[in-house]
Nucleic acid binder design. Structure first.
Lengths: 148, 148
DNA sequence: CTCATCTCAGTCAGACTGACATTC
DNA sequence: CGAATGTCAGTCGGACTGAGATGA
């Protein structure tokens, strides 16, 4: 297999392995989302709205770890497709309150199922236990950075 | 910590965790390389040249998993800095034979040390044993895709 | 002719920066 | 006033596509 032909330095460099697998992950996830005219950012926004309820764009940006400027555009898209509603908050008129619509909620659940099978494909070489180990390791490594 | 505020769907999605940590990895590695006027692609090329000796751009492209068109430009850069030499192969005049120079070799070893400490920073939350586990899991997951 | 190699121009999604008006 | 919010324009590195020239 040609993967074994990669230089030792790269094959043992965590950041390279991470990068290569992230490319693959982005590809499989992207194909699923593209089938519904969406991108990764849209999914993160819908997920946050479903789990935390209506919230401001700033809250969405923080929770889904997306840039605020990008959130403006993602929400533009979602609003145009009637997957979310954007309303000025009367209590604080700087804020928009974003709410997921029933169509958005339905689409989210459909995406969940498709993305789950995408993950199966991505991690096909790993047992269920190994996948959980991988998730745990990544989570711990990430948490240290978000603390800063 | 605000990482805990991320939607459950994202926090448990391997591709999202992978993507987030890959961003961090790219940042720390990129800073090291930028200090020497290089990018990630340059490092992969130097590593391959050091480990496998002089080789064609096509071989470099395959081994370091870089796009062939991009390799043209990375090599342009390295050649301009006298870190590699590019010679037409007389036996097959379609090919360039790329050779690492002594300056390139010296720089590579300096980068190795700096990148290693960058990885320490990236994975500071993980023990040595956990880092090896992570590398093993990523390697196995990746190998399945490169087989295709 | 077919195929591989190299080169070049350009596209694309996505992370990011800086400026700005509005509102608290 | 300073700080937060949303908006907008634009930059940047990097993955990728397609076409073409050269030569095996």
């Amino acid at each position: 297999m040609d993967f074994d032909n990669a230089p030792q330095r790269l094959r043992t460099l965590p950041s390279w392995l991470l990068g290569q697998l992230a490319i693959e992950a982005r590809r499989v996830g992207g194909e699923v989302l593209a089938g519904h005219g969406l991108r990764h950012g849209h999914y993160g926004l819908l997920a946050s709205l479903d789990e935390f309820g209506p919230q401001s764009q700033a809250a969405l940006s923080d929770r889904a770890r997306l840039d605020r400027g990008d959130v403006v555009r993602w929400i533009d898209d979602l609003e145009a497709q009637r997957l979310v509603a954007r309303l000025r908050d009367p209590a604080d008129r700087r804020r928009n309150t974003i709410t997921i619509t029933s169509a958005g909620s339905r689409l989210l659940h459909a995406l969940d199922a498709e993305l789950r099978s995408g993950q199966d494909q991505l991690l096909q070489a790993l047992s269920e236990a190994d996948r959980l180990r991988l998730i745990a390791l990544l989570t711990r490594a990430l948490a240290a950075h978000h603390a800063r």
